[in-house]
Design a protein around this nucleic acid. Sequence first.
DNA 1: CGGTTATTTGACCGACTTCAACTGCAGTGG
DNA 2: CCACTGCAGTTGAAGTCGGTCAAATAACCG
Lengths: 261, 261
Amino acid sequence: MTDVQEPFGRRPALPPVQRTSAAETVIGRKLASHTEISPADIAVLEDLAGEPATFKPGAMIAASGDRVDQATLMIEGLACRSKILADGRRQILSLLLPGDVIDAHASLLGERDDNIEALTACRIGRASQGALTAIGLAHPRLAEALLREALIEGAIWREWVINVGRRSTLEALAHLICELKLRMDIVGIGAGGDYPFALTQEDMADALGVTAIHLNRVLKMLRATGTVDLQAKTLKIRDWPRLLALAHFSDGYLHRDRSAA
Amino acid sequence: MTDVQEPFGRRPALPPVQRTSAAETVIGRKLASHTEISPADIAVLEDLAGEPATFKPGAMIAASGDRVDQATLMIEGLACRSKILADGRRQILSLLLPGDVIDAHASLLGERDDNIEALTACRIGRASQGALTAIGLAHPRLAEALLREALIEGAIWREWVINVGRRSTLEALAHLICELKLRMDIVGIGAGGDYPFALTQEDMADALGVTAIHLNRVLKMLRATGTVDLQAKTLKIRDWPRLLALAHFSDGYLHRDRSAA
DNA sequence: CGGTTATTTGACCGACTTCAACTGCAGTGG
DNA sequence: CCACTGCAGTTGAAGTCGGTCAAATAACCG
């Protein structure tokens, strides 16, 4: 399950990516969802990242112990942060959706302490930390957006702790689905109510800190509530209010508003 | 400025310590542990924070829904980040020790989504976000140190997820103790091998996502291993290597080195 | 000293894990 | 076309970990 490919460090300077308007890229939609940022600033970031690299499902995009010197831009696909214990137990720490920009500041930490795994085929951009920092001075809104990305990811981790620590598996599963649904809405994935859902049951189990077998049974219970329809890698929400209630979901931690200082 | 930095826990006040250089404050020791920072920069931060405020044990220093507009400097005492669910279940997300500086950037998120609770009597400083940002321009090392504080706290949350999700309660408890021991070492608390340990069993349970009753039994098991001696609000490490092994503890996530970019 | 809070213990029960087997499906190669 | 393989999902039985209810100390506080 872990074939490492493509160590990073290869960022070819290629002809600028063609696009009609910067705000129409996933990255643009994501950053603009929380920060008042100009298409020009987004273009600066995307040009810096250059042509995206491709990873196969199951590939390690980055591994624990690697030196972090680049931010990662999720263009397409589904990935996750995970940690793997010595005896093989895996815990998924968060899911990375198109539009997410991670590790924009993490080079300050030196070696990374977690893994980034591609769960499906992924296309990602990379932007060197040093260049980002320099560019941030001339484009304060961009710097602000990247910092806010990091802070929101932190808020998601905090909520993740609750999910794993204090919710029943049924609540936690419902909560996870609510979070994913809303995050996909932000970047405009899943129009028409059909959300792509590539997580295997084992992935979900590793996200919630339970076994895949138990997750399977709980998933059956969740289906029985009639709130969601989850099969064939597609998620359909059948009864959103009831799903929210089941999860005791409260969306504050996603900080989707632009009401900040 | 400030003061005596004193171990947390209920202890008699010590006579004021003569401070010859800013690096001898808790905040200074903490920031200097990960960032090459000058005493002058630390003094700038502490002057901005001014005279510390005092909180009684159990007090809410900040509550979910509050607008975040200030960084918080832990000068003395023990506090925690927590979230509380509608039905009263509490989850502790991280512990705040003297020297920790939190929320230095969080005003970007607007309303906070967690609580900061004083677990013992606490003395904390406050620095307005706006002033901090402005000062950061003139004192890049200080800005770097504050950012690194935030990133390290993020790393601690990630590890916390593992603790709650994938470790047995015995492993998780041992792991929590290892983390606290090392973090106290960083700021020079617990000289002589006697670490102040003010957490109640209920606090520990809420940190690990279990009930206090179960924690009590697991604590008995941990004591039976002979690796720690934990009573009367004091922690003594009896067999550090074996405690580390029991917890499968690996210190990378604390990022204590200064080997960053 | 009395009243609260923290710790400890017992008995019982439910959630979750473990081990094991079986299904369905997609690819791959003969 | 079909056997073979591998993986994701499903189900069952049995056991363990952790939760709940209840109550008895022990420690703390005014």
